[in-house]
Every structure is written in C-alpha cells, then in structure tokens.
Amino acid sequence: MDYIFPLANTLHALAAVIWVGGMFFAHQVLRPALGANEPPVRLGIWGRVFARFFVWVWLAVIILPITGYAMVYGDFGSFENAGMHVTVMHAIGWVMIALYLYLYVVPYGQYRQAVKAEDWPRAGKILPIIRRIVGTNLVLGLITIVVAVSGRFWG
C-alpha cells in the first residue's frame, strides 16, 4: 500500500495540470488567435476544441476528488490533520467542479446545438458565457495552485 500516496499525488497533479493548463491555453492563447476568423470558422473550431478538451476535463473532474480524498485520508487521516490549505483546495475544487458541470450541461449543450444547426448568431451569443465560466474557473484553478504550493508554509 506504500504506492497509493505517490500514485494519488501524481494523478492529482496531472489532472490539475491538464485542466488548468488547458483552460489557460484556451482562454489566453487560442481565443485571441481565433479572433480574426469569420464566425462560422471560429465557432466551428471552438466546437471541435470543446469536444476534445471536455473529455479530458471529465477525467480530471473524476480523478481530482478521488485522489484528493485518498491523499487526505491516506496521508493525513482526516481533514483536521491536513491543514487549512487542504480545506481551501477542497472547497475551491468543488466550486470548480460545480461550475464545470453547469457549463457542460447548460451553455455548452446549447452551444453544441447551435453549432450543429449552423446557427452562428446564437452560438456567438453563447460563447462569451462559456468564456466567462472558463475564465472564472481558470482564476480559481490558479488560486488553488498557489494554495497547493504555499499552503504548507502557512503559520
């Protein structure tokens, strides 16, 4: 059983990097780069990007809580022994997951329908909603990373 904590820790870090790094790339790099394209091209690309990226986010949404709880209870025995930073990460993580679930079911579901119907004006109105949710989750993810690397030094 000595392998559980290193495995959980590794999977947890990889899932966080994939999710937060993917959001950073999409929000800060891909979005501005696609801005010069006509709406049908830009919105179609986003539809294909989301379809591929959200598979990875689903994996992260499953892996992060499982590995997080494995580390809390396997390494510390409980949240009480884990430190405040772990509780902060736990809370932010569930907010991020809730935002993602909402994003996937409501705006992304509507976006997929609009792109499939080639209703570019409707898709164009939904994309900023998705962008705001992704932007919010990106900020929360970056805060979580700061907490993760600095938390053990908190007084």
Rank of each mutant, 00 (worst) to 15 (best):
F153K: 07
E80W: 09
Q28F: 14
A15K: 11
I63R: 06
A82I: 08
P32V: 13
I45M: 12
G141Q: 03
L142G: 13
M23W: 08
H12T: 09
G135M: 11
R112V: 15
L7Q: 12
Y111M: 08
P65E: 08
V61D: 01
A114E: 07
P107Q: 05
G77A: 11
A70T: 15
Y104E: 14
G83Y: 03
Q28E: 13
F53H: 01
L138S: 04
G155S: 12
F24A: 15
V55N: 00
P107M: 04
A8M: 11
A8S: 15
L99K: 00
F153Y: 14
D75P: 00
W58E: 02
R152G: 05
W120R: 02
E118L: 04
R132V: 04
Q110T: 05
F5E: 14
I45R: 05
G151V: 02
P65A: 05
V61C: 02
P128D: 10
V95F: 01
A26R: 06
L7E: 08
A33G: 11
L34K: 06
V139P: 10
A26Y: 12
S78I: 04
A91I: 14
M1Y: 10
G35H: 10
V49L: 08
I133D: 05
P40D: 13
I92H: 01
P32D: 08
M89Q: 14
M71W: 04
D119G: 07
I66Y: 04
V61A: 06
G93P: 00
V20D: 03
A98H: 06
P32N: 03
P39Q: 13
R132H: 03
G47M: 01
M96Q: 08
G35Y: 06
F53Q: 01
V55P: 00
R122N: 12
V49Q: 00
L59S: 03
G74P: 04
L7T: 15
L103Q: 11
L101P: 05
G151N: 07
H90G: 02
G21L: 02
I143E: 08
H85V: 00
L14M: 15
A60H: 00
G109R: 06
A98N: 00
P128L: 10
R131P: 00
Y73S: 07
T67C: 07
T136G: 02
A8K: 09
R152T: 07
A114Q: 06
F79C: 09
L64S: 02
F53I: 09
I18G: 00
I63M: 05
R152E: 02
G93E: 09
A117V: 01
G47W: 04
W56T: 08
I4G: 01
H27D: 15
Y100S: 12
R112Y: 07
V146M: 11
N81K: 14
I92K: 00
M89N: 11
W19Q: 02
G44R: 10
G77Y: 09
W58I: 06
A13Q: 14
F76H: 13
I145P: 01
V106S: 09
M84F: 11
I143P: 05
W94Y: 08
A15S: 13
T87R: 15
A114S: 10
D2G: 15
G83W: 04
A148L: 03
K125M: 14
T136Q: 04
Q110M: 14
R112P: 02
G68T: 06
A51W: 00
A123W: 10
P128I: 12
P65D: 04
A36S: 13
F5Y: 15
L142C: 13
A13V: 15
P40I: 12
I45P: 00
G155Q: 11
P128H: 09
